[in-house]
Amino acid sequence: MSFTKTTEQDSHYDNLENMSVRDLLENMNREDKTVPLAVERALPQIEILAEKVSEALKNGGRLFYMGAGTSGRLGIVDASECPPTFGVPHDLVIGLIAGGDSAIRKAVEFAEDSKDQGWQDLMGYDISENDIVIGIAASGTTPYVIGALEACNEAGIATGCITCNENSPLANTAQYPVVVVVGPEFVTGSSRMKAGTAQKLVLNMISTTAMIQLGRVKGNKMVDMQLSNNKLVDRGTRMVMDALEIKEDEAEFLLKQYGSVRKAIDAYKNG
């Protein structure tokens, strides 16, 4: 199958250095507006992958994200936000980046070029057939990610991907590919822009859907969120007040006593 990296094609705009600040912002915003529409076109693929992730987590498995550079960082962001937002264990959703944790802040040269390192990184977590691995790569050609997914396929581990180029090697490797075609970037080849935005949107959708399917949201509230700062304690207090129709001081007392919105509400109703 033919493969063209649309994420690497020339920008629709030129002479950027001669544009005013307003023109730069308006043109970038014009391009950004196309991203949700590209995600919408990929909804059937996202649905399949989200269902597979939910199924794996319900059956005691874990979700792994794997990527390099911006893609790897986006996976780590999504994984790191699941415990405080939904109260799940830190080892339920795991983000891995080529080059290790130091690559989160600083680029590690050539880290993404090893086809073996991704699988080695997964082996460090005793990965099994219960788990599911999602490779994230805008280009769809990152060896670190492709090699890991190939090894997972051989080991009977479910694989998905999020990429922004059709017919890419990554999309053809993953069992459940998600391909969001955003086209050329405003700055040619800078896939931290539209491609990165698309990946973030898809990651939000997959993890949030899975957490709702796991029962980590009640109504539309994050009833299992961690009370890690005053803002979240205040939010939790209001949630308890609304759910039980009680006063603020009583709601706050219950929340601090039981440590979560869900437990405070259940204890009050069952008390």
Rank of each mutant, 00 (worst) to 15 (best):
R41K: 14
A42F: 01
A42W: 00
A42M: 02
A42I: 01
L43R: 04
L43A: 09
P44S: 06
P44E: 04
Q45C: 06
Q45S: 14
I46R: 03
E47H: 11
E47R: 14
E47M: 12
I48D: 14
I48P: 06
I48H: 10
I48R: 14
I48V: 15
L49K: 09
L49Q: 10
L49D: 10
L49E: 11
A50G: 07
A50Y: 02
A50M: 04
A50W: 00
A50K: 03
A50R: 02
E51H: 09
E51D: 15
K52W: 09
K52Q: 15
K52I: 12
V53H: 10
V53T: 10
S54G: 15
S54M: 09
E55P: 02
E55D: 14
E55A: 06
E55K: 10
A56H: 09
A56M: 06
A56R: 14
L57K: 00
L57H: 01
L57E: 01
L57G: 05
L57V: 01
K58V: 02
K58H: 10
K58T: 04
K58N: 12
K58G: 13
K58I: 03
N59F: 00
N59I: 00
N59T: 01
G60E: 03
G60R: 02
G61W: 05
G61P: 08
G61A: 07
G61S: 07
R62P: 10
R62Y: 08
R62D: 12
R62F: 09
R62A: 13
R62S: 11
R62I: 11
L63Q: 01
L63F: 05
L63V: 05
L63E: 01
L63P: 05
L63K: 00
L63T: 01
F64E: 14
F64N: 13
F64V: 13
F64H: 12
F64D: 12
Y65S: 13
Y65I: 15
Y65W: 13
Y65A: 14
Y65K: 12
M66A: 15
M66K: 12
M66R: 12
G67I: 08
G67D: 07
A68C: 04
A68I: 00
A68P: 00
A68K: 00
G69S: 10
G69V: 11
T70H: 13
T70V: 15
T70M: 14
T70C: 14
S71T: 12
S71W: 11
G72R: 06
G72Y: 07
G72I: 07
G72M: 09
R73G: 06
R73S: 07
L74K: 05
L74S: 06
L74T: 07
L74N: 08
G75F: 07
I76R: 00
I76G: 00
I76L: 06
V77P: 00
V77S: 04
D78K: 02
D78C: 08
A79I: 06
A79K: 01
A79Q: 03
A79F: 02
A79C: 08
S80G: 04
S80V: 12
S80N: 07
S80R: 02
